[in-house]
């Protein structure tokens, strides 16, 4: 397991791709491809509910290990495990594990019963109290059109047109 995470982090730099958690299951019978393309060679056919180790993501594809094979499956064919996969400190390469630990242990690590430290939004929604000063601060952060254009350009974001997709079953 350690090895796969290390490999994942290394590849992340090369491929510029995000990496999911470790364990996942297929939600339906799924073809494992040699490369992250629909027309790539099929390495194996995974049955529904097959357990796989996730190595990395590249757009809609996840690189996974299942039995002796390593290949690519569509990310939305997988369901991630919950309880058995709760983040551990330093696990994977997202910050989920660290955050989880911060909140579970509290900021000072001062012991028990600080499980909900830093979580007060719901209480504030049930008993609303305005904060006009903070609102003004939020509204005053001015990012103009020119800055937005420059920001998109620096990120090499090339726009395209696409209509919204209808709900499944809708005409």
């Amino acid at each position: 397991m350690k090895k796969s995470i290390a490999a994942c982090t290394g590849m992340l730099i090369v491929m510029g791709s995000a990496c999911g958690a470790e364990l996942a299951y297929t939600v339906r019978p799924t073809e494992m491809k040699a490369k992250p393309f629909t027309d790539a060679a099929t390495l194996a056919k995974l049955a529904g509910n097959s357990k796989v180790d996730v190595l990395m993501r590249q757009s809609s594809w996840l690189q996974v290990k299942a039995d002796a094979n390593t290949g690519w499956v569509k990310m939305l064919s997988l369901r991630f495990d919950q309880m058995g996969n709760a983040p551990k400190a330093g696990a994977g390469n997202s910050n989920l594990g660290t955050l989880f630990n911060i909140v579970q242990t509290g900021s000072g690590g001062s012991g028990a019963s600080t499980g909900v430290k830093g979580l007060k939004i719901e209480e504030g929604l049930r008993n609303p109290r305005p904060n006009p000063d903070a609102l003004r601060q939020m509204e005053e952060l001015d990012v103009n059109d020119a800055e937005v254009k420059a920001f998109a350009k620096a990120g090499k974001l090339s726009p395209s047109t696409m209509a919204y997709v209808p709900a499944p079953g809708a005409n």
């Binding site: 991630f80 989880f100 998109a152």
Partner: peptide, 24 residues
């Protein structure tokens, strides 16, 4: 449309799936 990988949102949802659902 904006030029981002559209699988960003599903990736976030999958990441959140790995968190203990009892997490406050």
């Amino acid at each position: 449309r904006a030029g981002y990988d559209p699988y960003g949102l599903p990736a976030v949802l999958q990441s959140l799936q790995t968190v203990d659902p009892n997490y406050a």
